[in-house]
Nucleic acid binder design. Sequence first.
DNA 1: CTTCACGCCTGTCAGC
DNA 2: TGCTGACAGGCGTGAA
Length: 274
Amino acid sequence: MPELPEVETIRRGLTCQVEGRQIVAVDIRLPRLITGQTAEEFIERVVGRRILLLDRRGKYLLFRLEDDMTLVIHLRMTGRLYCRKPNDAPDSYARLIFDLDNGDRLVFADVRTLGTLSALRSEELGIIHGLATMGPEPLSTEFTIDYLTQVLASRKGKIKSLLLDQQIIGGLGNIYVDESLAMAGIHPERTGASISHEELSKLHQAINAVIHEALSHKGTTFRDYRDSYGKSGGHQQHLRVYGRKGEICETCGERIVRTEVGGRGTHFCPNCQR
DNA sequence: CTTCACGCCTGTCAGC
DNA sequence: TGCTGACAGGCGTGAA
């Protein structure tokens, strides 16, 4: 579900809610969400440890625990993380519940149950392939025009699919890829190698601008996304093309179309994006 | 190595 | 109203 701006918004909210807290118990209601280890092993690694820091890499949340342990959580499509007071109403989609030492409960809820969790020592983090091979993130110093040029050169795949590849850029998902290509004026089915230097420069700028804007609006709530306080994002008011099939392009007045590219719903302006 | 299709799950919504 | 099929913000796997 969430992409970089949404996961970062969750991280910022959760930080004040859980940092310094000790995990005193875990209720695992759906053990298959624990990957790479048994539920018993997961419990043994998490219970009794304090949450020192909350990090993020791409769309992964990394809870740094005592004793060099990291709780790694990926929300996938419909995962949510939030803190619940002891008397708050239970959530029928709660899949894991962490009891904290102040009485609060950290809830991992997930309608589609595609999310994943694991508890790993630092030297084991490499077994999470998506984390180990993730490319640089938008707005980072490693994400430069030169990097983008080098990594897209000689690629025959469609630019939309390439931008969704987390090994190329970490953190982009379907919404922000469509939005970035719209801002850069690039058709989603162009090949990576066909993008000119001038367009690469525009694309680099657009990706950074779109992610920056979305962060400032605390993410996009298109359907399910909520932050750690249960609040919706605000960036849906600012989308240029995503979810706007048949509506008018703000730039040229043409109607926005929806197609399928690489198996993903794709929105673009056929006049502005070529 | 790169690209692409598919499976994983459950819920919602448009259209008939 | 009720049913069916399309679609959903992600990612890993395996085939070509």
